[in-house]
C-alpha cells in the first residue's frame, strides 16, 4: 500500500492507443496537501494521464489508487463522490443556466449524493446551498455576475466559475488541466492568485500546465513527462536544473 502521506498513487500505468504507446510505466505519487505539477511538451501524454486518473479513459494496465481506494474501473461520478474534482482544459460548464445555479449544482451533489428524487421540493427553499454558493462566488470575485447566463461569460470568468464549482465541493484532490490555457496575462495572474489563495486550505492539487510562469509560482513538486514517460521528478529547483529536462522540454519546445 501507499505511504500514509501519499494521497494519490498512479501505479505502473500503461496506456496504448493501437500502436501508440501514449503512457509507459507511469509511477506517480502525489503527497497530501501538495501542489503537484505535471509538465511536458505537446503530445507527451499529460491529458491522457489526467483522463486515466479521473476515469475517463481506462488504462491498458496498472491502476490508480486514491487514499487506499482503487479508482480504476470506477465511473467519473463515483470518482467525484470520493472527493476528486476536475477543472477541464476547455471549461465544462452549464452554459444554459445562471452562474449561481452552476455553482449550486455541485454543492447539491456533495450534499445529496449521486441521485435524489426531490422533485416536489422547491429550489427556493434551498437557502443553505444558495448562501454557500453565493459565498463561493464572492471568494472568486464573481458575485456581481451570479444572475448571468454562464454561457455569456468571458473565458476567464468561465474558468473562475468552473473553479468555484469544484471548490464548493471541498474536494480532497483537485485536478487542473491547463487552468490558464488561452487566457490573457491579466486573467492568468488573477487565476494564479486564486490558486495560491486556495493552496492555504490544504487541498491536494494536480496541475497540468504549459505555462512555466504558472508552474513555478504554484508547484511544490514537478514531474516532467516526455513521450509518455516520466523523465524527471522533484522540486521545482531540481527540475529546473535537470539537463535531461532542458533537452527534452525546455530546449526542444521553446
Amino acid at each position: 500500500m501507499a505511504q500514509p502521506n501519499v494521497v494519490l498513487h498512479v501505479a505502473d500505468v500503461h496506456k496504448r492507443f493501437g500502436g501508440l504507446h501514449a503512457l509507459a510505466d507511469i509511477d506517480l505519487q502525489v503527497e497530501e496537501g501538495k501542489t503537484h505539477a505535471i509538465i511536458g511538451p505537446n503530445g507527451a501524454g499529460k491529458s491522457t494521464l489526467l483522463n486515466v486518473i479521473i476515469g475517463k479513459l481506462p488504462p491498458s494496465s496498472g491502476q490508480v489508487v486514491f487514499d487506499g481506494t482503487v479508482l480504476t474501473g470506477r465511473k467519473p461520478f463515483q470518482i467525484n463522490q470520493l472527493g476528486i474534482a476536475r477543472v477541464f482544459q476547455t471549461p465544462e460548464i452549464f452554459a444554459d443556466l445562471s452562474v449561481l445555479h452552476n455553482v449550486m449544482i455541485p454543492a447539491l451533489a456533495k450534499r445529496d449524493g449521486m441521485f435524489t428524487l426531490n422533485m416536489l421540493r422547491s429550489l427556493d427553499s434551498e437557502t443553505g446551498i444558495r448562501a454557500e454558493a453565493e459565498h463561493m462566488l464572492e471568494d472568486v470575485g464573481m458575485i456581481n455576475r451570479r444572475d448571468m447566463l454562464a454561457g455569456s461569460l468571458s473565458r476567464g470568468d468561465k474558468r473562475r466559475m468552473e473553479l468555484a464549482m469544484c471548490l464548493i465541493q471541498h474536494p480532497r484532490l483537485l485536478l487542473l488541466d491547463e487552468p490558464t490555457a488561452g487566457m490573457s496575462r491579466h486573467d492568468t495572474n488573477t487565476t494564479i492568485e486564486l490558486l495560491k489563495k486556495i493552496k492555504s486550505r490544504g487541498m491536494t492539487k494536480v496541475i497540468i500546465e504549459h505555462d512555466m510562469h504558472v508552474v513555478f509560482s504554484l508547484a511544490d513538486k514537478i514531474s516532467v513527462l516526455a513521450q509518455g514517460r516520466i523523465i524527471a521528478d522533484g522540486s521545482p529547483d531540481d527540475v529546473r536544473g535537470n539537463p535531461k529536462v532542458q533537452e527534452a522540454y525546455l530546449g526542444g519546445a521553446h
Binding site: I54, A85, R86, F94, I105, T116, R121
Partner: peptide, 28 residues
C-alpha cells in the same frame, strides 16, 4: 413544481452539459 425543484435543475443541467454532470458526481 418539477421545473422549480432541485431535481428539475438537474434535468436542465443534463440537457446543458452531461459530461459536467458526471464529473460533478451525478449519476445522470
Amino acid at each position: 413544481r418539477i421545473a422549480g425543484s432541485p431535481f428539475g435543475m438537474m434535468l436542465k443541467a443534463i440537457k446543458s452539459n452531461q459530461t459536467r454532470m458526471q464529473f460533478t458526481g451525478f449519476n445522470t
